[in-house]
Design a binder for these strands. Structure first.
Length: 271
DNA sequence: AAAAGCCCCTGGATGC
DNA sequence: TGCATCCAGGGGCTTT
């Protein structure tokens, strides 16, 4: 479910409230993708300094070490001062003196992993290979184009891979390619500098807009307050197979790329 | 090195 | 109503 916008919206919805909180306990539900990597009791007494985001990971900085959180496909976080009892899909609770941070994740592709403070966060195994942050100043169109030139895979799959640019998942890859007028199947290396620039801008535009709209709620995404997103209402192509293109009126098509659905408009995406 | 497939898991929609 | 099948926002790992 969660791509960069949903993860960032989640972060914004609880970062201020958890900053400065003292950890009082940890409750684990069923196993997530990876083991926590430390004894839950060892977190008690530590302070949450703040929350950052790297790609689709949330980084909870502690006074000693940090927690990496990933929402996987079906995860969402809630932060509640007066929480109810844990449900069958609530697999991680961080009890603090400010409130309870709870991970709800039916499919359990998500994860909470402890990392020691020793290494810089960027050196962590899970983060080391990640590409540029698309909404940061460091996302450079020239470097983006240079990276694309090295890849022969279809541009849609290069966007999803996350080693050139992070945070673009299945919804926003289709949306960005539509905005840029680029066919999802074109080999990445075929994109000219001008078209790479256009895609670079489209990625930034669609992600920034989605953050503004609170993310996309297709089934069950909500931020840490339980509020849903609204970007799905203005999607140009994602999930719109057979419906008319909002630009040219032609029928939106869908196809499979790497066992994921891709949505596009034949007429508007000729490149 | 890069690309393509394979899984992890649950639930909802659809079809017979 | 019951059961099988397919599909879903991710991504690390293994195999080509």
């Amino acid at each position: 479910m969660p791509e960069l916008p949903e993860v960032e919206v989640t972060r914004l919805s609880f970062a201020d409230r958890i900053a400065g909180a003292r950890i009082e306990g940890v409750r684990l539900g069923k196993p997530l993708r990876w083991a926590l990597g430390c004894l839950p009791e060892s977190l008690v007494g530590r302070e949450v300094l703040g929350v950052r985001r790297r790609g689709k990971y949330l980084l909870l900085d502690l006074d000693v070490g940090l927690l990496l959180l990933h929402l996987g496909m079906s995860g969402s976080l809630r932060f509640e001062v007066t929480p109810g009892p844990a449900g069958p899909h609530d697999h991680f609770d961080l009890v603090t003196n400010r409130g309870l941070l709870r991970l709800h994740d039916p499919r359990r592709f998500g994860a909470v992993v402890y990392a020691t403070a020793g290494d810089a966060p960027e050196a962590h195994k899970l983060l080391g290979h990640l590409g540029a942050e698309p909404l940061a100043d460091g996302f450079d169109p020239l470097a983006f184009h240079a990276g694309l030139r090295l890849r022969s895979a279809p541009i849609k799959q290069v966007l999803l891979a996350g080693d050139l640019v992070v945070g673009v998942g299945n919804i926003y890859a289709s949306e960005a390619l539509f905005l840029a007028g680029i066919r999802p199947t074109v080999p990445a290396r075929q994109l000219s500098l001008a078209r790479a620039r256009k895609l670079h801008g489209a990625v930034r535009q669609v992600l920034a807009r989605a953050v503004e709209r609170g993310g996309s709620t297709l089934r069950d995404f909500s931020n840490a307050h339980g509020e849903q997103g609204h970007f799905q209402l203005e999607a140009m192509v994602y999930g719109r197979e057979g419906e008319p293109c909002r630009v040219c009126g032609g029928a939106i098509r869908s196809m499979r790329q790497g066992q994921r659905s891709t949505f596009f408009c034949l007429r508007c995406q000729r490149g």
